[in-house]
């Protein structure tokens, strides 16, 4: 098993943290190999932000994402830039309020992560809602692992909120 994952959006959405948490969950709590690399190359320009994760059972040599298995897009730009790199059988996950699909080809999982986060009272946790959704949709990570990694990565006073956000997203993905 080897999965190349890109999280994309714009600055301020916590895109960098998403990649970091996902890779951390794989390494520390799912006992898999994973490498996280921050924004790299042209896709990082402008207000765009992206983070990249490879999760594998085997040793990971080249650490960069080239052919995307899972693209998580939380902005139109992130979607348009990266969708061409998605493998034929790849999974596209979008925030449906922020991304308008250009062609309907392939498997697309949609969630209104930002709106859900707003309903929870903090728009900033949209990335965590999305991580929960990502976990349920792709099944690359266990829920237990992502939960531990999230709780370890957020400030103490926001742990509860983030746990709720993660669970909301996860449940959406299970539907």
């Amino acid at each position: 098993m080897k999965k190349e994952i890109r999280f994309s959006g714009y600055g301020g959405q916590g895109i960098i943290l998403m990649g970091n948490i996902a890779a951390k969950a794989a390494v520390l709590y799912d006992d898999k190999n994973a490498v996280y690399t921050p924004s790299y190359g042209p896709e990082a320009r402008g207000g765009a932000a992206s983070s990249n994760v490879i999760i594998a059972d085997e040793e990971i040599d080249y650490p960069y994402v080239t052919d995307i298995d899972v693209l998580v897009a939380m902005s139109q730009l992130g979607y348009e830039h990266n969708a061409p790199l998605l493998k034929d059988n790849g999974v596209l996950i979008i925030d449906k309020d922020l991304v308008k699909l250009k062609n309907g080809v392939g498997k697309v999982a949609k969630i209104d992560a930002t709106r859900i986060a707003e309903q929870l009272g903090k728009r900033i946790v949209a990335n965590i809602v999305m991580l929960g959704f990502f976990t349920a949709v792709t099944k690359i990570l266990s829920y237990d692992a992502i939960k531990k990694a999230v709780l370890e990565s957020v400030p103490a006073k926001f742990k509860e909120l983030n746990e709720i956000a993660l669970e909301k997203g996860y449940k959406e993905g299970k539907k």
Binding site: A23, V27, A34, V35, Y36, T37
Partner: peptide, 9 residues
């Protein structure tokens, strides 16, 4: 830069 910024086990 790459080794410095990438995270791993």
């Amino acid at each position: 830069e790459c080794v410095a910024h990438m995270s791993e086990r």
